[in-house]
Amino acid sequence: MNTALRLEPLTPANLDAAIALKVRPDQEHLVDPVVKSLAEAYVHPGVAWPRLIVDGDRPVGFLMAFLDIDFAGDGTGTDIRSGLWRLNIAAGEQGRGYGRFAVRAVADEIRRRGGTRMTTTWHIGEDGPEAFYLALGFRPTGELSGGERVAELDLI
């Protein structure tokens, strides 16, 4: 693995670079833009974990994890989950392993916090990223969230 590849917290110094990241035009309906993720991170402090994916000195992507949310949203705390909320790899940077790196980095953070499973969702359809997530070992749960397929990865 490229040792120059790392995650960086969002700061005033890299905010514009993060916002400027764009997926391919044919993927824009599959993932919200970085600016929406940053707004969600602002209103969900302590839950959202936004990070810039950097290769050397070049921003190549953005991820946002969610940590310990009440997935059912019913306030009972019976379905607490952590996982990958958003993944944006810049159009010209796709196919170079940055997405796999991002998923592994989120899995490592969840493990570091004591988690044993990682949840994500994806757009259903031929043009969606299902094959990517299945190849990484995610298993669909049979649930839908916001019209997207829910899947989990065991981290044990």
Rank of each mutant, 00 (worst) to 15 (best):
A72R: 14
A105S: 15
F101V: 10
G142H: 12
Y98Q: 01
R149I: 14
T121G: 14
P12V: 03
Q27S: 04
L87F: 08
L7R: 01
L10E: 06
K36G: 00
A105D: 04
P59A: 07
G75K: 07
L30S: 00
V60Q: 06
I80V: 15
F71Y: 13
R139I: 14
G61Q: 05
G137D: 07
M64H: 02
E28H: 08
F138R: 09
I80F: 13
A90F: 10
P129F: 10
G114V: 05
D108I: 00
T119L: 15
P50G: 05
F138I: 03
N14E: 00
G97T: 13
S37G: 14
L5P: 07
I53L: 14
G147T: 04
R24G: 07
S145M: 09
V31E: 14
E152V: 15
F101N: 01
V43R: 09
F132G: 01
F101A: 01
L38S: 00
R113V: 09
V54H: 02
A48P: 06
P45E: 10
Y42L: 12
S37V: 00
G97F: 02
P140N: 08
N2K: 09
V103K: 04
G83H: 07
G46C: 06
R58Y: 07
A131Y: 00
D70Y: 06
L144P: 06
T121K: 06
A17T: 14
G125E: 01
T116H: 13
R117T: 13
R104I: 01
P25S: 13
L52V: 00
E40M: 08
W49M: 04
V60A: 14
D108L: 07
T141Q: 07
D55W: 03
D154T: 12
A151Y: 12
G56E: 11
A39T: 06
G61N: 07
E28M: 11
V31I: 15
V60C: 09
Y133V: 11
T11Q: 11
K22R: 15
F66H: 11
N2T: 07
A4W: 08
Q27E: 10
F132M: 01
R149W: 05
E93V: 11
